[in-house]
Write a protein that binds this DNA or RNA. Structure first.
Lengths: 219, 219
DNA sequence: TAGATTGTTAATCGATTAACAATC
DNA sequence: TAGATTGTTAATCGATTAACAATC
């Protein structure tokens, strides 16, 4: 679809799978590397060659949003990067808060892989008096009792949930009451939350369990 | 299937999806909680009620391995826990090593969610002279140049890969050369490794990107 | 034009959900 | 027996892969 000579990005509501979205970020990452190498034009085959993804998958994923390449030629690297960023909402800074400033939270806040996805972690929260008032990198740690009022004032909508399993649900509830709409949950619990709140789960124990299972059957 | 009056666990090679395996671990986790509460018998409905999973999914998942419940009654909690552990290979300790003892690796090694999946992280490796010789909890940090010989001597088969993105592939190569068969990769790169090596990926940037995308479309 | 590569439709595959007979 | 709940088969749904016409 073309409008004024530029490809139009179709913003779809729902219906696009998380798998597609997550793959798009791996494409983006690889494209950035190629761009740094000075590559200007790239084919679907080249983009996916190191990603364990078939080229058709790449074209299919993009096709949910529009057509961004030139038949017979390929894709303009720089333009495609901009397009994918716009599709994913990574062209603007997204502010987020961190609930739980333990080891995992601290690792997360300083995770180098975040460069390029344009996140701004504006505050961290913990219930440990020894941590409150300190800084994690450039992020200040506040008393978790003030998390609700902070969310309301700052109107932040995304949170990383890194508190222990047994308090995850109650902390999540207070996040949502204050207006958080997207949570990336690292606690090994399935959160029960109202519709309209998007929850992504990173369950490291089950990822490891999956690897262990494969070790067992490959004996 | 019954053999000598006890349900037989069918060990399948491949063909069982990672989704099923990962869900099994969430079942296990919930069953452990119920067991601590003194619950002895549980239905598929009860197991899944807090897991955002339909009860049929639970029964289907189990059915890949056998039948472990009593029709009209439910499942014996303690017995089911033991069975799932055995199916997943969590009834025995699995030894693993940590490659990359940065913040993420340190968080991982001390992750409380690991209790219950029976992992023994027997050594950590890093290239930072300031870290080598130190301990992470009870795990000693060694020079990463010795990781190959350590793997060969100890015959460990599972590794957590927490090194920076740009060295992930080369470290993974040396892990595999030394005999590692299962890797949980936290670096934001797609590893290219020979068949027979199982790689699980935890890509935190793309998980966050997925949440951000959902924020964007829910506006 | 001939060759290359996209964008999209169709076919396949696999996973989830529904339904229900078996049976406690 | 009547009610409950499993285990499994069948139906549905969605995602991946294949194929190919469009077109640069």
């Amino acid at each position: 679809m073309k409008v004024n000579g530029t490809a139009m990005i179709v913003t779809r509501k729902y219906s696009i799978s998380p798998e597609t979205i997550k793959r798009m970020i791996t494409y983006l990452r690889y494209l950035e590397i190629q761009k740094k190498k000075g590559i200007r034009i790239i084919s679907s085959k080249d983009v996916t060659s190191y990603l364990n993804v078939p080229p058709e998958q790449f074209r299919k994923d993009l096709s949910f949003f529009g057509g961004f390449g030139k038949r017979g030629v390929g894709y303009e690297v720089e333009r495609l990067i901009k397009t994918i960023k716009k599709i994913l909402g990574l062209d603007r800074k997204t502010r987020a808060i961190l609930a739980g400033a333990g080891r995992l939270g601290a690792a997360l806040i300083q995770y180098p892989g975040f460069s390029g996805i344009n996140m701004d972690i504006i505050a961290a929260f913990d219930n440990d008096a020894g941590k409150i008032g300190k800084q994690l990198k450039s992020t200040r740690i506040y008393d978790i009792r003030n998390i609700g009022s902070f969310i309301r004032k700052s109107r932040v909508r995304v949170a990383f949930l890194c508190v222990p399993a047994d308090s995850a649900q109650s902390v999540a509830d207070s996040l949502v009451r204050a207006g958080i709409k997207g949570i990336l949950n690292f606690a090994p619990v399935a959160l029960v939350l109202p519709a309209g709140v998007y929850v992504g789960n990173v369950d490291m124990a089950s990822e490891i369990g999956n690897v262990v299972y494969h070790m067992k059957i490959t004996n």
